[in-house]
Design a binder for these strands. Structure first.
Lengths: 150, 150
DNA sequence: CCTTGTTAGTTACAAAATCAACTATTAATT
DNA sequence: AATTAATAGTTGATTTTGTAACTAACAAGG
């Protein structure tokens, strides 16, 4: 079992990104799963609602590039657990406004602070400049526009 | 729908990594799926065998951190298509040595060159220094030891 | 209006991932 | 040697995802 090639799997960005993503979210994933029984998409939706206050499923999908099917199911679960409330838009009865309930807010705050300290822990081994650069490059790869003024 | 917080989802590394990983592998995924009908795990196994020549399923799992169940099924498919041949280890009859058949080698070479040029295309927008840094940081996040002398 | 097209969201069916149990074989312990 | 534990790999049951088709509501052009 000796390497015999130059372009290794470990140079291949899609592979590397997937591995880094899996590895880096494992612990956090375990946490939010155990604590709230939330899957990745539910947690993403919760975050968006926590950050933006009120959105439709479409808003979330556009912003996070999550497929509407996933959002629909995530919202259904969150609503079932009373983390999210829904209300029809009376101007356009196709869409539904979503917002966090008090319980949802509490879960959001908790997960958010978890995320923040988990993030800090991941990033510990790099310099602030490296981290800034990493985030910038990842945003570009993810097709997320640079935040205007931060 | 206005932002009201400081620590955005888009700063959170596990989120960012997942998004970047998804985005960057989408196109490539479409390619290898259409061309060889291979799924991500099959393609990963193929790559490992192409790079290392001969390995057991365990070797692959250890190196790529893929669960043995996935490897078992991926290998089954690859063997069915005659991309991989298996032979029992007579010293330890529990394990099986895997290697690529000529057809497997051909598929590997093809996918490898695809991967290489796809990688180059992803990376186009950054400077070589940035790319080197990105790979290094991602390897660290993925828990992959730095290649000794490259 | 009334056909045609578009959009928001849900649901159904197929494909895949996950987790646990299982077989076969080897290693370790008494 | 006999028992117990550990390891390589497979299989099966359950959960999750992904793709596509579907419903309901609105929009635009004739």
């Amino acid at each position: 079992m000796t390497e015999k090639d130059d372009f290794s799997l470990q140079d291949f960005l899609p592979f590397l990104l997937n591995r880094a993503a899996e590895d880096s979210s494992l612990e956090f994933q375990a946490h939010y799963k155990n604590r709230y029984g939330m899957l990745r998409n539910e947690w993403r939706v919760l975050f968006h609602l926590g950050i933006f206050g009120q959105m439709t499923a479409k808003d979330i999908g556009d912003r996070a590039k999550i497929h509407k099917t996933k959002i629909s199911r995530a919202v259904a679960k969150l609503a079932e657990r009373r983390f999210v409330s829904r209300s029809r838009d009376e101007k356009d009865r196709r869409s539904e406004h979503l917002r966090l309930t008090p319980a949802g807010e509490a879960a959001y705050r908790d997960l958010r602070s978890q995320a923040q300290s988990y993030d800090a822990q991941i990033v510990e081994r790099f310099t602030p400049e490296e981290v800034a650069m990493l985030r910038r490059m990842l945003r570009q790869l993810a097709g997320i526009e640079e935040p205007a003024s931060r």
